[in-house]
């Protein structure tokens, strides 16, 4: 287990949801995250992909302890969060930071860019004093490509891409070991998206930072990740090394996801084989029995309705949760 900084084991987040009807007190669990396990090494990027409602964001928030897990454990440097006291949690928060999707909405409109970026420093290193904090903020602004002269401007005076840079600067100012990025580039224009992806990769190299990069965009995830996890209805369908996953997706859902990404080349896009899944993802309140993907899976059998497939090793560190992965010819994307 060398270099593992974060270990997530059988993590579950179930939300009690009031189900309709006249009876008071009828609750059903919405299994947003249902038994997710993985390790993350220092300096590594784990991409987490899946469609809306698959539990990506909840998983990210549970790792950061922003939402309480219903089961399982999250350990940081070998120590479980469950055993951590308030003081430990405070210290842990310094080492794990977060960047959210909507750049403008996630910044306090009444604070200047400088105050937003400085806030974590005041919380954790208030004794540094105003001059030193100001110096560090300007240095970080420069690193993320913001003019330090803009330090006294308010969020609405920045573009979407610049607001996201403010978010990244704030996340980086404490030199954390892990940054969880929840759809950090989804709200950005294509030309700005590339700038922010490059920035995150450069900061990772410079600070040896680990990243959890949550996104529905498989092409961006491929670019930035070392390993990739594919989620569907709160469960891990596949978890593999980036190159292995993209060259040879094993799970029928991963295969369909990849086939669905349009290629910006008219000849290739029109010639590629179409794998069109039927229907929409089912409601997480009412997941199918057995394999949660079976209602849309072109390879489903009776066994799939009956038994939940476990994650199996397909070789090296790559895992897939499918009863029939051995019989399936892996498609190359």
């Amino acid at each position: 287990m060398t270099g593992v900084i974060l270990a997530v084991d059988d993590l579950k987040v179930h939300f009690p949801v009031r189900t309709g009807g006249v009876l008071i007190g009828q609750y059903r669990p919405l299994k947003a995250v249902d038994g997710v396990s993985f390790d993350l090494k220092a300096g590594e990027t784990l991409g987490i992909v899946g469609e809306s409602g698959c539990g990506k964001s909840t998983l990210g928030r549970a790792i950061l302890q922003l939402v309480a897990p219903t089961g399982g454990t999250v350990s940081w440097l070998g120590k479980s969060f469950c055993d951590a006291g308030a003081a430990d949690l405070h210290a842990l928060r310094r080492e794990m930071q977060v960047v959210f999707q909507d750049p403008l909405a996630s910044l306090d409109p009444r604070m200047t860019a400088g105050d937003i970026i400085a806030e974590p420093l005041w919380n954790f290193h208030g004794n540094l004093g105003r001059t030193e904090i100001d110096r560090r903020v300007r240095e970080m602004m420069d690193k993320v490509g913001l003019l330090p002269a803009m330090i006294n401007r308010y969020p609405h005076e920045f573009s979407g891409g610049q607001c996201q840079r403010i978010g990244v600067a704030r996340a980086m100012i404490l030199k954390p070991k892990l940054v969880v990025c929840d759809e950090p580039v989804s709200a950005l224009d294509v030309s700005i998206r590339a700038q922010v992806v490059n920035l995150l990769m450069a900061l990772q190299r410079e600070f040896g930072l680990a990243l959890i990069f949550i996104s529905h965009d498989l092409a961006v995830v491929r670019h930035i990740s070392h390993r990739v996890m594919v989620l569907y209805l709160g469960r891990v369908m596949e978890l593999a090394d980036r190159d292995a996953l993209y060259a040879m997706p094993r799970h029928p859902y991963t295969q369909a996801l990849m086939a669905a990404i349009p290629i910006p080349d008219p000849d290739r896009e029109r010639a590629k084989p179409r794998v069109i899944l039927s229907g929409d993802p089912p409601s997480p309140l009412d997941p199918p029995s057995g394999c949660v993907f079976r209602t849309r899976c072109p390879h489903a059998t009776a066994l799939c309705a009956d038994q939940t497939p476990m994650l199996e090793n397909t070789g090296a560190d790559n895992k897939v949760a499918c009863h029939h992965w051995r019989e399936m010819s892996p498609t190359s994307a």
Partner: peptide
């Protein structure tokens, strides 16, 4: 600057500097 599934992964993405 559009990352694509049909091309090899490069180090840094091409970028258009500045903003719209």
């Amino acid at each position: 600057c559009t990352p694509r599934m049909d091309a090899a992964v490069t180090g840094a993405l091409f970028t258009i500097p500045g903003q719209p």
